[in-house]
Design a protein around this nucleic acid. Sequence first.
DNA 1: GTGAAAGCGCTAACAA
DNA 2: TTGTTAGCGCTTTCAC
Lengths: 319, 319
Amino acid sequence: MTVSRVLRNRGDVSRATRERVLEAAKKLGYVPNKIAGALASQRVNLVAVIIPSMSNMVFPEVMTGITEVLDDTPLQPVVGITNYKPEREEKVLFEMLSWRPSGVILAGLDHSEATRAMLAATDIPIVEIMDVDGDPVDAVVGISHRRAGREMAEAIMKAGYRRVGFLGTKMPLDHRARKRFEGFTQALGKNGLEIIDQEFYSGGSGLAKGREMTEAMLSRTPDLDFLYYSNDMIGAGGLLYCLGKGMNVPDDIGLAGFNGVSLLNGLPKVLATMDACRQEIGRLAAQIVADRSIGKDSRHGNRIELSPSLSPGDTLRKV
Amino acid sequence: MTVSRVLRNRGDVSRATRERVLEAAKKLGYVPNKIAGALASQRVNLVAVIIPSMSNMVFPEVMTGITEVLDDTPLQPVVGITNYKPEREEKVLFEMLSWRPSGVILAGLDHSEATRAMLAATDIPIVEIMDVDGDPVDAVVGISHRRAGREMAEAIMKAGYRRVGFLGTKMPLDHRARKRFEGFTQALGKNGLEIIDQEFYSGGSGLAKGREMTEAMLSRTPDLDFLYYSNDMIGAGGLLYCLGKGMNVPDDIGLAGFNGVSLLNGLPKVLATMDACRQEIGRLAAQIVADRSIGKDSRHGNRIELSPSLSPGDTLRKV
DNA sequence: GTGAAAGCGCTAACAA
DNA sequence: TTGTTAGCGCTTTCAC
């Protein structure tokens, strides 16, 4: 009826009626029922966002980018957490799809068979984020982690380091970390090098973990001249350890992390790292969904590969 | 019809039909429409979570606690971000309520008139989190930031520090930071002390910001013997600065932060801090909503005050 | 510019 | 154990 028209600002309502309705609505504390609205209109202003974790700082940052863009639209994010488990991803996605959202943003390109099937079966816009190494179902925005690993390896070799150790997460299901590692070792291999020592951990990343792993590795293999960490947090811990031991960074030993965590600038030395373009990825993904939801086909196209920039900081020898 | 019963595992369906339905559903790639279901049953398995920001690590941690508990229930979180703006909070809440969620979890006790009115008008379970200094609409779980500030001040004075500087966020709308500051100054005042110098910043917190502010303050007011930071990140930056300058921590100068960010353990010295019980708050809040959604527990009158514990680390002189 | 009527795809209650 | 029916509170369409 007319009330519905007023509340949705559709035209064709006289000023008088309009005001009367608005007043009544306010007086009654009326809150529209979007469920009924959605059912009737077959339109839902929700965007499903499916990420592995909130503890890894990367994902809140992606979320920040997403909300930043969605805030200027009628769309709302709905977050689901998978804890890096394919079966949880499946369940969460199913749950989300049953709300018929306007779009789905999910991390990574590696999904279970069932997940891929669900994604393929729906005509909801799907944006896979973070990673571009693989076949997207629909749209994708991210970086190539293989290339990121490769470029870091190349920079390290170019700087003259030869005896490289790797410290990272023990997470077979963190495909992005795995791909970085693959790209890294592959590039070393091309130059006839290989990783001399490696150490994997499980559990949360923190400075302390980085310290402790670094100590373990260096006491086991003292003649390393470079340490590559799978993230900045443990890298920073390693850096503090090395500096504390009076080592000469980056001359005796070089260090690098990954992510470009700007919070950590302010360490005694700036850690070499590679920006993962997290917020930007969130923004672009949200933009694609927002555009599609109003029938605009995204001006960016369906595949956006960002280029992470390597910043050598103070822990990578200048060539 | 029967199909509905099968899909919701309601009893009274024969094995044969059951399997037949399940198979057909799978073959057709059937995804139920929760919108229609929710409309018909007046039940929605969504929990609205309204927080100020994702960039401040505190909130992702709360979210982690929330999802941890909700994962074992049929409930799903829906996140809204307010950027510390009351008018955004109002809008986000309105939007959320129009989905008739099973519960609302929102940060803080300080809301606009309209927000309070909406909260009071609904019979959805409301849990206000983080802060207990004020009047909750319904349930509340958090810590007393006034008391946290007070206790830190008392510990500092007891340790013999007398010339205290404060470094914090310039955020009139971050009520929790404000309350900590109030409790802090008040406790100092009781002992005839006051803050000698203070510095506020805006923008993100990071080690670099802490460094820079500390440098500014100490060059302006060199005779301070204690620096109290509004969060651990800038506190850690300050610590690195002081150590870098060769100052004697904690004897010449003491430092403390707030939040108990365990990621930062691993600094050359452990920063004194106070745990804000973030994950625990998230868990408890989610538990209240989960309980209420299945009719457990009495409506109204839930109040959980957690006690943040002060850990002196290495930057608060031992008495 | 306004109202009336017909669903949207489910669930709840009841009948068979 | 199964099928039937009547809404849930909106939006859409169409008549006035």
